[in-house]
Design a protein around this nucleic acid. Structure first.
Lengths: 208, 208
DNA sequence: AAAGTCATGGTACACTCGTACCATGATGAC
DNA sequence: GTCATCATGGTACGAGTGTACCATGACTTT
């Protein structure tokens, strides 16, 4: 097993000249991202990852262990980043529930390179797990669940009519952005088009 | 290359004792389905397929050629079956545009074993192609496109208000069922739940 | 100064996979 | 009756993969 939490009795080497453990992990994880981006998950082998990251195969093993553990770490990383982006967008908007909701929903749609890579990795890993093993790791479900909860929260604070079924509306919105995102990845729609569609749905909801 | 269209000057052996070409292909394609169902696409190797179908590896090659060609044939098959199911559901309902629309949309959602297998194969193959090569084969896009067109057709015949943006509504519905289906596959929602959500959206659309 | 740990490289092993090649009955054509 | 063609089996080969193993400098600790 790799370094683990190492209660490291040596507080040494914080600003070391050679990369720290965290930097090395980052370096390798980023390499995995680039590889998945244009070779798919099946192209992400120990050798290709090592080459892309400019390190030896041994080092990838050293930091991440077996292949499954590596992919799990990648999944955790992309989930953490997605969550961070979601919260970021949320806080960057004014207090209006509707605007916050909109910003949050759009954070799921692949608009720039960063979110496109994240989405690609997410889909690759998630479907791979789902298909090969029947279920995905917990982290994989955490993001959409958080999304759903956040939508519910915003809808409640929006003070919609009492006849609005908030949970169902949240499910509709969450699955909607899922589908929209996939269609953007597919290239069947542009990000602008699907955002327009999303706004259409939001308009109806907030006008109803 | 396998048999091809063979303008077969011999009209012989239509009711032969040993399986016909079409039966053999069917037999192998079904085996692929069962394998993908519980082993994922990566579990579908020539050897596993041959064993599952009860034939030799050579025979799988003989009928489908290379692995890519095999997977392409599988994709075509599942697309054809999905289309057939769509049309089936469509014709099995009375003339009401709304009911036809509803039946058609539900045909995308994995409700029984058959549609679940189809959906799994569809997602496996489509994402695999999308990731590994950047785009999927044409057949892969045909189904959602047909879905979209059919939705538009039904909405037009439904005589909704003139302020209804039919194309956008069709996009919303199509991407919605995409997302809903995936969530059912994930196990995060049951088919009943997502159908209820879908009905909610339909109600709003037809009441608006 | 010795010893131990950390971070790293190189490499060999066993395995699986896709594919190509060779063989052989059966069936129909001439 | 000979011969080509079809449908099928068996198998060998080369490439790639994940992983385990051994080696070695650089630091820390004692």
């Amino acid at each position: 097993m790799p370094p683990e939490k190492t209660v490291t009795p040596s507080p040494s080497r914080p600003p070391s000249p050679s990369p720290s453990r965290e930097e090395r992990r980052r370096q390798i994880l980023d390499a995995v991202g680039r590889i998945i981006l244009d070779g798919g998950l099946s192209g992400a082998t120990f050798r290709s990852i090592a080459t892309e990251a400019g390190v030896s195969v041994r080092l990838v093993q050293y930091y991440f262990g077996t292949r499954d553990e590596l992919l799990l770490a990648v999944q955790e990383d992309v989930a953490a980043r997605s969550t961070a982006r979601l919260i970021d967008r949320l806080e960057a908007t004014d207090g209006s529930p509707r605007e916050g909701l909109r910003a949050m929903l759009i954070s799921f749609i692949p608009t720039d390179d960063d979110s496109r890579i994240a989405m690609l990795m997410y889909v690759s890993l998630h479907t791979s797990w789902l298909m090969d093993r029947g279920s995905a790791p917990e982290d994989s479900y955490a993001v959409p669940r958080l999304g759903h909860a956040t939508i519910v929260d915003h809808l409640e604070r929006a003070g919609l009519g009492e006849d609005v079924d908030i949970d169902t509306e949240a499910t509709l919105l969450m699955t909607l952005v899922t589908g929209l995102s996939l269609w953007v990845l597919d290239g069947m729609h542009t990000a602008e088009e699907v955002i327009a569609a999303l706004d259409h749905q939001l308009n109806r909801l907030f006008a109803g």
